[in-house]
């Protein structure tokens, strides 16, 4: 069986620099994986390459065996970074979810009864049915993330890609979102996300890819979250404290203040 994602010998970047070169990576179907790495290491470029929205200089990207440019509309669900969303845009939560149902087959502006039912079903499942008619600005960080997740799930995707879903939300919301993604993954949907939150990844994700202009290491967090791998990934001292199944990952030496406050 073809893997969910296969990058073969891919080189990608921009006009003046190459972000990563000769990258080969396979992610099997049904995997729940996170990509971690420092800012500017190419995580977002890698994600966009997998989504087919970033042109590659060399190599091929295939999703479940098909070239990414020929994948059926809706086969990939995408949740952008919440920081990139225009929150003043006049859309309700319902309208956001409804966008995910567009397949290019209908020219009718208003949704069908079936589409409305699908939106309600997704909203109930993700716990946001109470705020369906609220403007997106008037929802909490967790509800916003769930609204975009519902939009991504609306087209029944085989692959779900999320760009930093744990950024900008509190620790409990992070926990809820990652558990929700775990439940979605249990239904057989492959999930790939990027994050800066190593602690959340270590305790919630079964598979991690350490990335810095190429794959530094990949595997289960318990196997690859070592000082050596993380130092190679981030280029600085990383301290890892393990307690039962929990990790606390910190970087560098704590600041000492001259006024005696530590």
């Amino acid at each position: 069986m073809d893997p969910a994602i296969r990058l073969s010998d891919v080189t990608a970047g921009y006009a003046h620099d190459v972000t990563f070169s000769r990258l080969s990576l396979e992610i099997p179907r049904g995997r729940f994986a996170g990509i971690v790495g420092p800012t500017g290491c190419g995580k977002t470029t890698l994600l966009k390459t997998i989504l087919g929205t970033h042109r590659v200089f060399h190599g091929s990207v295939r999703l479940e065996g098909a070239p990414v440019e020929r994948v059926r509309p809706g086969a990939i669900g995408y949740v952008p970074q919440l920081g990139s969303v225009d929150w003043s845009f006049p859309v309700t939560v319902e309208e956001v979810i409804m966008m995910g149902l567009y397949t290019g087959r209908s020219f009718r502006p208003w949704p069908s009864r079936k589409e409305r039912a699908r939106v309600r079903e997704l909203a109930r499942r993700l716990g946001i049915h109470d705020c369906l008619h609220h403007h997106i600005l008037h929802t909490s960080g967790g509800q916003r993330q769930r609204a975009f997740l519902a939009r991504a799930l609306a087209s029944n995707p085989r692959l779900l890609v999320l760009d930093e879903p744990t950024t900008g939300v509190d620790i409990m919301t992070q926990h809820e979102i990652l558990h929700l993604l775990g439940d979605i993954n249990d239904e057989g949907i492959t999930i790939l996300l990027t994050t800066h939150d190593l602690n959340a990844v270590a305790s919630h994700l079964p598979w991690v890819i350490c990335f810095n202009h190429g794959v530094v290491a990949q595997g289960r967090p318990c196997d690859i979250f070592t000082s050596e791998v993380l130092t190679r990934t981030y280029g600085g001292d990383i301290v890892i404290v393990r307690h039962e199944d929990h990790y606390l990952i910190a970087s560098g030496t704590p600041l000492r203040f001259s006024n005696g406050v530590h």
């Binding site: 966009k48 989504l51 087919g52 929205t53 059926r72 509309p73 809706g74 990939i76 995408y78 952008p80 990139s84 969303v85 225009d86 845009f89 859309v91 309208e95 956001v96 966008m99 995910g100 567009y102 397949t103 290019g104 209908s106 020219f107 502006p109 939009r151 991504a152 087209s155 890609v161």
Partner: peptide, 23 residues
């Protein structure tokens, strides 16, 4: 505008996600 209501709305709100959806 009537016929392109949905792709116009989606691409205006979130161009990247609209492209991923096949628009």
């Amino acid at each position: 505008i009537f016929l392109m209501y949905r792709p116009l709305l989606f691409s205006t709100f979130d161009s990247e996600a609209a492209r991923v959806s096949g628009i």
